[in-house]
């Protein structure tokens, strides 16, 4: 079998893969401003999906819609076969959507470990009265989750800052802790909002490695926003391009790279 045929077969298999999330005709407005108009795309189970576009294209707004922080004015979002109209962010979280933020949104007064343990909140269910005692079942549960979090800490190589308040950490490490916190939720879909913004080359490489590892080892589906085109084209399976709230392209990195409208959007067109 030729290499080309193999590749084609891979494509077909991937196309047949289960769809995890579908976004259909979503529009979002703030006052009179249309942040998103009529956006549709899907995310398949197990893939890395990138959302790119110039500043102000509506990428973060799109993520905010997906995890219930913004409510689209029209359109439908289907996750794991369930369509929803309005939902609160904690409902999205309990369905298995986790995320990191463009401007690090860690709990600054808490230690790295406590931050990551917060991600386990939904998995902890010992009731209030056991919590009062912090012995027996409550403590067992606490330790069980501590072990899970320690695995994540190992994986992200942040053992040495386990007990440091995150407010004191440098930016790159904060981003890593934030990824850890999202991973602690054991999400089905992980939304990463500019995970590599403001990082140097080395930190970017580390972060890429973590993202790919998460995708392969934990089989977590990932949707990410990123401005570094090299990174995006390297690690993502498929790319959506937004501009001024409209979708202008959707496809594999190579297809997107060749698309004239994408080139125009990034390089500008002379009129």
């Amino acid at each position: 079998m030729s290499a080309l045929a193999e590749m084609l077969q891979g494509e077909v298999a991937r196309a047949a893969a289960e769809t995890l999330l579908t976004v259909e005709n979503v529009s979002l407005t703030f006052g009179g401003v249309r942040a998103l108009s009529d956006i549709s795309f899907d995310i398949r189970k197990g893939e890395i999906r990138a959302i790119i576009g110039p500043n102000g294209a509506g990428k973060t707004s799109m993520l905010n819609c997906i995890n219930g922080f913004y409510h689209p004015r029209s359109g439908r979002i289907t996750f794991k076969g369930k369509t929803r109209q309005r939902m609160r962010p904690y409902e999205a979280a309990s369905q298995g959507i986790a995320r990191t933020f463009q401007n690090v949104a860690l709990f600054k007064g808490m230690t790295t470990l406590d931050n990551i343990l917060t991600g386990r909140t939904l998995k902890m269910n010992r009731n209030f009265f056991w919590q009062l005692l912090r012995h027996g079942p409550a403590m067992r549960e606490e330790i069980e989750h501590r072990i899970y979090c320690e695995d994540i800490i190992d994986f992200l190589e942040i053992e040495h800052i386990r007990k440091t308040p995150v407010g004191k950490l440098p930016y790159g490490l904060q981003k890593r802790v934030e990824l850890g916190r999202a991973l602690a939720m054991q999400p089905d879909l992980l939304l990463l909002d500019e995970p590599m913004a403001g990082m140097n080359l080395e930190e970017k490489e580390d972060m890429c490695r973590f993202i790919l590892d998460v995708n392969r080892h934990f089989r977590t589906t990932i949707a990410l926003i990123e401005h570094d085109m090299g990174v995006v084209m390297d690690i993502s399976d498929r790319v959506v391009v937004l501009e001024y709230g409209h979708k202008i392209a959707d496809g594999t990195p190579d297809e997107v790279k060749a698309d004239q409208r994408v080139i125009d959007a990034y390089l500008g067109v002379s009129h």
Binding site: N67, F69, R88, P89, Y90, A92, A93, S94, A98, R99, F101, A105, L106, F107, K108, G109, M110, T118, G119, T121, L122, R181, M185
Partner: peptide
């Protein structure tokens, strides 16, 4: 520390 992030964590 960050109520919005807390809600997105499922709190």
């Amino acid at each position: 520390d960050m109520d919005i992030a807390a809600e997105l964590m499922g709190i």
